[in-house]
Every structure is written in C-alpha cells, then in structure tokens.
C-alpha cells in the first residue's frame, strides 16, 4: 500500500520541512502579535483597547482559509517578493502565507496571554510598584513570567492547532505536507495512502511538540516548590 514512498519520500520530506518552517514562523509572529495585542487590549487608552478587540473579533470570526487568501492576494499587490524557490514553493507564497498564519494565531495567543495575566493576583503588581519598579518592568519581569507558566497548556494547544491549520496554505500554492500528499495522490490516482502518510506526519510533529511543552511545564513548575 505504501510502496510509492520509495519513490516519493523526498517529496514528503520537502513538504514536512516546509510545514515545520511555516509553522515556526507563524508561531513566532503569533507570539509577538499576541503580546502586542494583549498589551493594547489591557491598555488604559480606549483606542488601543478597541483596535485590539476589533482585530481579535475579525480573526476569530472569519475562516482562516479566506484570511490566508486575502492576505496573499493583497500583499502580492503591495510588495513584490522575488520569485525565489524555497523547498518547492515560491517565496512570494511562503512569506505572505507564514505572515497570515501568524496574524491568525496572534488573535488567539493574545486571548491566551490575557487569561494568564488576569490569573495573576493584583498583589504581585502592587508589590512591584511599591518597590518603585515601573509598570513595564512589573509586567515583563513579575507578572508575565508567572502568567506564561499558567498558560503553557493553552499555548501548547494553540501551537498544535497552528501546525495543523498550516495546511490551509495549500490554497495559495505553498507546497507543504498536505499539498505534497495531494500532488502524489493525483499522480497515483489514489489519494488515501498519501493522505494517511501526511496525517501521520502531522501526528508525529504535534506529538513531539506536546512532549516538549510538557517538559517545559514540568521544568518551570518544579522550581516553584524548591526548598533550598
């Protein structure tokens, strides 16, 4: 059933590498945007809060496939990326695609950060301020490190969804794993085996990521109760 892999494994490897790269870029952009928008969302300036609410509402309320296509077609008109091939896809597709993944993930990440920040007692902020620390230092050195520890499971979930969601970049011609599997399926006139291979690849990637998140969680949790 999987005899085709002898011939086609390089295609799947290339697709896997592409999936990993667009996911990592998407996650990083998502974290940065998440931080930016959670600060805006919690800002005392109503304009910032409103903008963040609008961003989050739009991203959460529309299909990621349409978001990706809109961003791709809009960006391709505004900026021109040279037609360089990268792991079987043009950079003019990979770059807007990863940015779109990041913009999508940023909305969810912002809400996850917000849940973490409001889970930390106000007393922590007050202790920081009472020592004469600035609001920024108190947020980044006192509140956020504790918030991140509380939201690791939710962040892990978000990263896992992003890896799976990255398959929507197929619609703008990024040759990630799903696209490659469909290509191989078309050549073989049989879609099921290559799609099973693609699914297994996603499973391995997300499983490894969840193990990594668990490891980080344990490591961060352990030191809190260290007594000496």
């Amino acid at each position: 059933m999987f005899g085709f892999m002898k011939q086609y494994y390089p295609v799947f490897l290339e697709g896997t590498a592409q999936t990993i790269i667009i996911s990592i870029i998407g996650i990083l952009i998502g974290i940065l945007l998440g931080l930016l928008f959670v600060m805006m969302r919690l800002s005392k300036l109503k304009v910032f809060e409103y903008l963040a609410r609008v961003y989050i509402a739009i991203v959460r309320g529309t299909p990621s496939m349409i978001q990706v296509m809109l961003i791709y077609y809009t960006l391709s008109k505004v900026i021109s990326v040279p037609q360089v091939q990268f792991l079987g896809s043009g950079l003019d597709r990979v770059i807007p695609g990863s940015i779109a993944l990041g913009i999508n993930s940023g909305a969810y990440t912002a809400e996850i950060f917000r849940s973490g920040i409001i889970s930390i007692s106000r007393g922590q902020t007050e202790a920081g301020l009472s020592l004469g620390l600035s609001e920024k230092t108190t947020m980044f050195s006192i509140v956020l490190p504790q918030a991140v520890r509380n939201i690791l499971p939710a962040l892990g979930n978000e990263f896992i969804s992003l890896i799976k969601e990255s398959s929507v970049l197929f619609y703008i011609g990024v040759q990630e794993v799903t696209a490659q599997a469909l290509g191989v399926g078309g050549t073989l006139y049989n879609f099921v085996p290559p799609l099973i291979v693609a699914a297994s690849i996603y499973f391995v990637l997300t499983f490894l990521l969840s193990q990594l998140m668990q490891f980080i969680e344990k490591k961060m949790g352990r030191k809190y109760i260290q007594s000496n």
Binding site: S121, G123, Q124, E126, S130, G132, Q146, Y224
Partner: peptide, 17 residues
C-alpha cells in the same frame, strides 16, 4: 518616591518565580 516607602502586604506578595 515609592522607592523610599517600603510596603508590607497582608498577603505577603512575594514573587513566587
């Protein structure tokens, strides 16, 4: 000014991390 005013809270508010 806050640097010159030490404050001790009912709930201690030590930084757990």
């Amino acid at each position: 000014l806050r640097q010159k005013m030490g404050m001790v809270f009912q709930q201690f508010n030590l930084f757990p991390h």
